[in-house]
């Protein structure tokens, strides 16, 4: 098992399976009358969020509290980073306070990798730029396993802004390692160059994607991509790539809908669809805490390289 969690590209199938299996065990813990265990008592974890994130940070924080770890939150606004302190100095300072684990989110890809070189603490990637968001990938797979049993042979379409999505990358690596088939669907301007290196199908029409897939993992579309000239208008995007009940009813099979949140209702996903029987979006959120507990628990025990 890797000591850090930097991305699913670097994880073996066994490691991914072990984390998810442990995630299910923690889901049981969360259903107990006292959903808290003393496991990480005495461990100190810092949540280093250089980018705004409410959901992921809360999910990690809750996971840490449920494991009885001591947590410190560090967010950029008002911190010394805003005053020009380098990342290396920040992490050195934090480490001098005897931190066991760092959960980091940053807009630059590779920051978790960079941090492994400046500290002895265990590094958990909570999203680095356009690179990876491994815990999201893992909780997406866990949610699919929970609902559908196994992801082996499952056809999953990732819909939307693949180019700027770390969620997409982690999903691709994780799903493929567990034997699922992955397709991408979005305008060519939002599909990264050489995406075919991943051995994925690519669809430019949501109807084709729905006919092909069993699962749609729909990504958030950021409106600033429109001003950057990557698609012409919100209206045109919704018409061509927005997922609607009507489009889903055109095929005669069960489709599962996922979304990493936060949802732009009415843009990438029709208003009520997120709350429909197709959706496992809230399961993703619930599983997120259990899965993150599993990651924190398993990584807390991996020793530094001898």
């Amino acid at each position: 098992m890797n000591r850090h969690l930097l991305g699913l590209e670097y994880c073996s199938r066994e490691e991914i399976e072990s984390i998810i299996q442990t995630g299910f065990s923690f889901k049981e813990v969360l259903s107990r009358p006292i959903p808290k265990v003393p496991t990480l008592r005495g461990k100190t974890i810092v949540n280093l969020f250089f980018e705004n994130s409410t959901r992921t940070r809360i999910s990690f924080e809750l996971a840490q509290k449920r494991l009885s770890a001591d947590t410190v939150n560090f967010s950029v606004a008002g911190s010394s980073v805003a005053k020009g302190e380098s990342l290396r100095d920040t992490i050195r300072n934090i480490e001098a306070m005897k931190i066991d684990m760092v959960v980091v989110r940053h807009k630059s890809p590779g920051v978790p990798c960079f941090l492994t070189e400046c500290t002895d603490a265990v590094i958990i990637n909570a999203g680095d730029g356009l690179h990876e968001h491994p815990t999201q990938g893992l909780l997406d797979i866990m949610t699919l396993q929970e609902k559908l049993g196994s992801v082996e042979g499952l056809k999953v379409v990732i819909v939307g802004d693949i180019l700027h999505s770390r969620v997409a990358r982690s999903n691709i690596y994780g799903l493929q390692k567990l034997g699922a088939k992955v397709a991408l669907c979005g305008p060519p301007t939002l599909i990264p160059v050489k995406a075919e290196q991943w051995g994925v199908e690519i669809f430019y029409d949501i109807g084709d994607a729905i006919r092909w897939g069993d699962v749609l993992n729909i990504l958030r579309i950021q409106l600033e991509r429109q001003s950057a000239g990557l698609f012409p208008s919100r209206r045109e995007y919704t018409q061509r790539f927005g997922v609607t009940l009507e489009k889903l009813r055109r095929v005669d099979k069960e489709i599962t809908i996922m979304h990493p949140g936060p949802i732009n209702r009415g843009l990438e996903l029709e208003h009520d669809l997120a709350d429909s029987e197709f959706s496992v979006i809230l399961d993703q959120v619930t599983n997120g805490v259990a899965l993150r507990m599993a990651v924190l628990y398993l990584k807390s025990g991996v020793p530094a390289q001898e």
Partner: peptide
């Protein structure tokens, strides 16, 4: 450089 590598590493590319 924009290519398979930049896509994998999540870095914007210069074609």
């Amino acid at each position: 450089h924009e290519g398979a590598m930049s896509t994998r590493l999540g870095m914007r590319g210069i074609p």
